[in-house]
Design a protein around this nucleic acid. Structure first.
Lengths: 185, 185
DNA sequence: TCACAAGCAGAACCATCATTCTTTTTACGG
DNA sequence: CCGTAAAAAGAATGATGGTTCTGCTTGTGA
């Protein structure tokens, strides 16, 4: 039964999702049509439906893809050999913010206020990221500040919470203050 | 030239904007039709266009209205007789967050990533609010902590910045974690 | 109280998509 | 290499929803 190999299929999905993110960043979730995404991705409208059930599904897919990628970037910066102190950690995180992703990230928050599926994706990603920060801060407290592991975890929780909040605010700042880059016509 | 007196006219605009905010909170900016707003406000679609040029204009109006109201609430809580310390200030601000406004607020951020007019409304409101926090923290430093006014303002700036960030994150948290209230059918 | 321009209601219009259908092309397993 | 079934293209469809138009109604200033 000849169909696309799994790897190729996943590649196509990513190709579509990436194009979608670029379009979203430019025009917002609801103002980009399937036709826009098809043009940006170089595929036809019909074939998009071979990879995503419908537009809502595509939005969810793009959101998930973007959040996973962001988590990866953060993982790299956060899990350095020597755990950075919270201020340093935050500035690394903010330095890694990509304006395109910031804009779509904020749009995703908005979508999450009404679409339960997107809300779950966003809250899951947020919780996971906060957990990563928690680990990172705990490691810093233990290895650099020489706390005992058990109380360190307790101490780290509110710090991680605050880091997350400041990161989100920075994301918003970038989304609102960065000019939208044009695409070649 | 008989037309509505200014006060009455302003009342109608507010009536429409309020209905719009309720609809937005339930279904999002783009998924509420003019028909929805007309039903919620008790007016007809036609008469909405007598008060707002088009939907984008209505969205801007609703956003502005909401932000002004939020600023007023914050003003009340923030400008107490005895300036509260930053922690206390933050917890008063978060206590004053209304879930409906939180959701529409986040939706407005999203719209701001795409619509320059909304972006200006949002950034202006944000800057104004940050300035209020700055004043409040400065007053606390001077009156309670007995700093000199000049260095106090300097010291207050980053604190106000952080308060603003934490407040925005709390708004997001409320928008995502609060269940959407139904309306009677 | 009156006259009339504005407000208002609701139907009608029309453009814009999401989605589906049909046909052609392509990639995979044998 | 080949046959086949999936994938891709692009036109067709249908619904949705913003905006406008046409009369009726109402509030306002004289």
């Amino acid at each position: 039964m000849p169909r696309l190999t799994d790897a190729r299929r996943e590649l196509r999905r990513a190709q579509i999702a990436d194009a979608a993110v670029r379009c979203f960043s430019r025009n917002g979730l609801e103002r980009t049509s399937i036709a826009d995404i098809s043009a940006e991705s170089g595929l036809s409208t019909g074939s998009i439906y071979a990879h995503y059930r419908n537009k809502a599904d595509l939005v969810r897919g793009a959101a998930r893809e973007m959040l996973v990628r962001r988590a990866d970037t953060i993982g790299e910066y956060a899990a350095a050999d020597v755990p950075p102190d919270p201020d340093e950690l935050l500035s690394r995180l903010t330095a890694a913010i990509d304006p395109v992703h910031a804009r779509v990230g904020v749009q995703t928050w908005s979508e999450a206020t009404t679409d339960p599926a997107v809300r779950d994706i966003v809250t899951d990603a947020t919780d996971r990221m906060r957990a990563m920060l928690h680990d990172c801060v705990t490691a810093w407290l233990v290895k650099v500040e020489h706390h005992e592991p058990a109380p360190a975890r307790e101490l780290a929780a509110p710090i991680a919470h605050r880091l997350m909040a400041l990161y989100q605010a920075e994301l918003l700042y970038t989304a609102l203050r960065t000019p939208i880059e044009e695409t070649a016509p």
